[in-house]
Design a protein around this nucleic acid. Sequence first.
RNA 1: CGGGGUAUAGCUCAGUCUGGUAGAGCGUUGCGUUUGGGACGCAAAAGUCGGGGGUUCGAAUCCCUCUACCCCGACCA
Length: 565
Amino acid sequence: MRLSQFHLATVKEVPADAEIVSHQLMLRAGMIRRLAAGLYIWSPLGLRVLHKVENVVREEMNRAGAIEMLMPAIQPRELWEESGRWDKFGDQLLKLKDRKQQDFCFGPTHEEVITDFARNELKSYKQLPITFYQIQTKFRDEIRPRFGVMRAREFLMKDAYSFHLDAESLAATYAVMYEAYSRIFSRLGLAFRAVQADTGAIGGNASHEFQVLADSGEDAIVFSDGSDYAANLEKAEALPPAQGRPLPSMALEMVDTPTQRSIEEVAALLGVATSRCMKTLLLRGHAGLVALCLRGDHTLNEIKAAALDELGGEVVFASEEEVRAIAGATIGFIGPVRLPAEIPVIVDRDAAVLADFVCGANVAGRHFTGANWDRDARIARIADLRNVVEGDSSPDGHGVLHVARGIEVGHIFQLGTKYAQAMQATVLDDSGNNQVMSMGCYGIGVTRIVAAAIEQRHDAKGIVWPAAMAPWSVVICVINSRQAPEVGAAAEALYQALQARGVEVLLDDRGLRPGAMFADMELIGIPHRIVVSERGVAAGTLEYRARDAEISQTLSEEQLFALLG
RNA sequence: CGGGGUAUAGCUCAGUCUGGUAGAGCGUUGCGUUUGGGACGCAAAAGUCGGGGGUUCGAAUCCCUCUACCCCGACCA
């Protein structure tokens, strides 16, 4: 590509609302332009990168035996009524009406459509297992789109769906997809981890997320240093503590804590560690309030809490009024001691082995010291309620957990029969009986990968693309060809020679001053740069510099060809 | 949806408190000089000051209202 014939739209300044590096650099490099909240135009440059990602994904899906197809972005309401998600999906589902006032939605995902397709097309167990996939635009009306293309409302996704006669076959394909995903992210040159995940809204059994490691990531992931255990923070189990609860050694005593409402303030006032304080949270359960107790230095895991029978699926904190009415104190002075008997106290495993702890007295401005379970407060039940922290034992018993940030770029699920059952997708088995098919689903956020790659690979000058994602492999920068025609001719010859070898080459023939040219090429992250100038032409050598190198080197044409393969 | 904020030239922003002829840098156009790390000179184009309403002799500025966008919390590829 001759740059003079392309539309490169780099800018020096960047809108103040671009918060993370990838968003800023994509804007500065001119890869994307915002159209509306969560909607982005992909410029010619951006599209080249997007296509690179798409092609790697496509190649690996094909290699794994999946078959490409394409489903409509717009889907009829009836299908979503069948699965029960028309209402359940919530406001993220963009609903539309056509001219006849019939209801449709813009697909946020395609389980319904593919299951409908499968029940019509698949009649016999002999057609199974089979995996379909598409690379297609999704729309989710996110509550808060942000970080540019990282969390946009409209985005490109590769979604695959597999169909099986039984769970064993599903597990086998799941393993194949797991491998395919690992290959994809490796080929794209990304540092990533596959972690065990909560199945969330999509539902089902086993599930893994593929997380690109980046400090700006929105997800917390944990992994063991003594095994290959890795999980989303939401999912990671906090093991019961090794030691049991010591015997009480202090008497229960009420102390004044007039303005100290937070654990930190109370601990500081009383001169005790936050780990000796009891954090008591009042939640609204389906049969009245429920108290959850955690050690003061631990945080509630809302996924674990939501799964408690008493809460039934969601975590809703009690209002200030409810707290005051029941416990006689405002938030900040709540504790398990002398709580009304109708409020069950569910205690975290680590909180349950505390003795002589500090807790709210259920009286405004007062806390207890020397509180002890059984003697002073009832335990209705002990459960795993907290988020694991750095240094906890790994749930598999090997090693210690570490916490990192990640960007979720892929997610695979064993859905089981959830959708096939609801939509009656059945096949005949080998004894002629109808069997509900088992399903797997496998998503990759194609657009998000582009942003995640930049988060991981950039420097002060701009993007540093991994080879597989670069819009062009090499750029030829031509210096002052207007006054030195032999320079232009040499650059043109090299351009032709590289093209003939199948190298994706960009010729910067814009006639800019060198500084401006170099800055642009570094911003957009071209991995290899050749400078053609009067002195190089005179010497018969090429000046080469890798994007991630500090200095240039002099190469012969043969050496360059060898380098670029 | 709750809480906070922003809206002025293509972009980044000043001007708003204290009402009085619309500003800067970058970018763009033309001419000239330049050509190894975002050049320089001269000239120029470019604004319904987010929309609507009000107060006033006079509104970017004060008041009301609507809209869009952004940030902090719950969702997800």
